[in-house]
Design a protein around this nucleic acid. Structure first.
Length: 311
RNA sequence: CGCGGAGUAGAGCAGUCUGGCAGCUCGUCGGGCUCAUAACCCGGAGGUCGUGUGGUUCGAAUCCCACCUCCGCAA
């Protein structure tokens, strides 16, 4: 089939790669406009754009696809459009361009976790299973009929980033299977159960702030869900303190510590923080202006001591 | 010209303001103690203090200048 691919971040790269390697023809790739990124405000191409350029595929970028893209997309003459973490809301006019419409690769088991950050949110919620759903895009947000699903467990210590990588590969496989079925007409679209639908919004940097009144398990899940972005953070002595890795600490201590107080801080225990319920052991930390350090390295600089309070 | 922090032993840091012997914790190596040790005691090795055939000075890790690199915020 002749396919137009809509996608932007690294999550979409395996799917695009799979399409390029398949017998299908990728006519063009549509992704978000280039943005200035980082301290130096350099313009960086998105991962999907990088791949498309490398493979010599036409790249289209619209400020607003519904306004600027319709005519050009129509002129390409695609049989099918595939979207995967593209980042813009589509209109009926665009959905109608290709005979087979648009199918979307989504990182959750729909109708659960519709919206922008399904993978992170599933980890934050402590879910033990998630997956990829491919659906027929309609004008709602991730509300179209389900075409195919693949499930996968969320491992106990898995971060959102690791899950992202796994799901993006599963999505690529499922995408090719699904297109085959569309082609030979064996697909059976299933309506989503609106009563079970949940919606998650985009994760913001501020969402990484830790509330030490939460239970150790809740914080542990949040830290995993916020890794590698935006990364969980707290404050110590007025300075930003990020931490990338932690674990629930099983032992109980006799203490009168408040939530967020460091109750142990040495070579044997590591850094143990009191939570609303239970204790959390911090493994990799980074203070503002500093590098990412292991707990032992962090302690050896004497930045932390028993009684210090994170808030 | 967006704002800010940092570069000192293998790791993490102090010392810089107020120029005057290169320090601390950990690791490492050797020895001691111990039934035992990621514990404790004693001793050692390990540094062009980011770079500069830069400036000031009797003397610079420290003050001034230029450059390189890393990081936090903002976007």
């Amino acid at each position: 089939m002749k396919i137009v691919f809509l996608g932007t971040p690294s999550f979409a790269v395996p799917s695009l790669n799979a399409l390029i390697a398949s017998r299908h023809e990728v006519l063009a790739v549509v992704c978000q406009p280039d943005k200035k990124v980082g301290r130096e405000q350099k313009v960086v191409f998105s991962p999907v754009k990088e791949l498309a350029l490398k493979k010599g595929i036409k790249v289209l970028q619209y400020e607003k696809i519904r306004r600027d893209g319709v005519e050009e997309l129509r002129s390409l003459g695609a049989d099918l459009m595939v979207s995967c973490a593209y980042g813009q809301i589509l209109s009926q006019e665009i959905i109608d361009i290709a005979p087979h419409g648009i199918i979307n690769v989504h990182g959750s088991l729909l109708p659960k976790y519709r919206g922008a950050a399904p993978i992170q949110q599933a980890v934050i919620d402590g879910e033990t299973e998630t997956g990829i759903t491919i659906m027929q895009t309609d004008v709602g947000i991730d509300s179209g009929d389900i075409l195919s699903v693949v499930k996968t467990p969320i491992y106990e210590k898995e971060t959102a980033g690791e899950l992202f990588d796994r799901l993006s590969l599963l999505g690529a496989d499922l995408l090719l299977e699904t297109i085959d079925k569309i082609e030979n007409g064996t697909i059976k679209p299933v309506k989503q159960d609106e009563n079970k639908a949940t919606h998650v919004s985009m994760i913001k940097k501020q969402d990484g702030l830790i509330d030490w009144n939460n239970t150790a398990t809740q914080i542990f899940n949040k830290v995993r869900g916020m890794n590698p972005w935006p990364v969980a953070f707290t404050y110590i002595n007025g300075k930003l303190l990020k931490f990338f890795d932690c674990e629930v600490f099983g032992c109980n201590f006799e203490d009168n510590a408040v939530c967020g107080e460091i109750v142990k801080c040495d070579y044997n225990f590591g850094i143990i923080v009191k939570c609303g319920k239970g204790y959390l052991k911090l493994n990799r930390l980074q203070e503002e202006g500093g590098k990412q350090l292991s707990a032992n390295d962090f302690v050896s600089g004497r930045k932390l001591s028993v009684g210090s309070i994170l808030q």
